[in-house]
């Protein structure tokens, strides 16, 4: 994971392989939640399984802390976080 220091006004996100990386400014609305950020990024990648059900993502900060969807997006200020999927493999 890239450990370059980010300004507090930016957020960096990556998938678990580092193939997909995103950055965005810290939202100015203090009520913005981590869940809203996840929804925005999930729209950029495969976000459903083979039946069209949505894949549930969480965010994990570079220090290993897991963020909840209801947490404030300000927790991400100047940080890099990884999108962690909950996803099914299956036989049919």
């Amino acid at each position: 994971m890239n450990t370059t220091t980010l300004p507090n006004t930016r957020i960096k996100l990556r998938d678990i392989t580092g193939a997909r990386r995103f950055s965005l400014p810290l939202p100015s609305d203090p009520d913005t939640t981590v869940g809203e950020i996840i929804e925005e990024v999930a729209g950029e990648l495969s976000h459903t399984d083979s039946t069209g059900r949505g894949i549930h993502y969480t965010l994990r900060l570079d220090d290993g802390r897991k963020l909840h969807r209801s947490d404030s997006a300000s927790e991400l200020a100047g940080r890099e976080a990884t999108l962690m999927p909950n996803v099914d493999a299956g036989a049919f």
């Binding site: 960096k12 580092g18 193939a19 950055s23 939202p27 925005e40 950029e44």
Partner: peptide, 8 residues
């Protein structure tokens, strides 16, 4: 949120 794609 003005999301930008970065290089992998």
């Amino acid at each position: 949120f003005a999301l930008e794609n970065d290089e992998p």
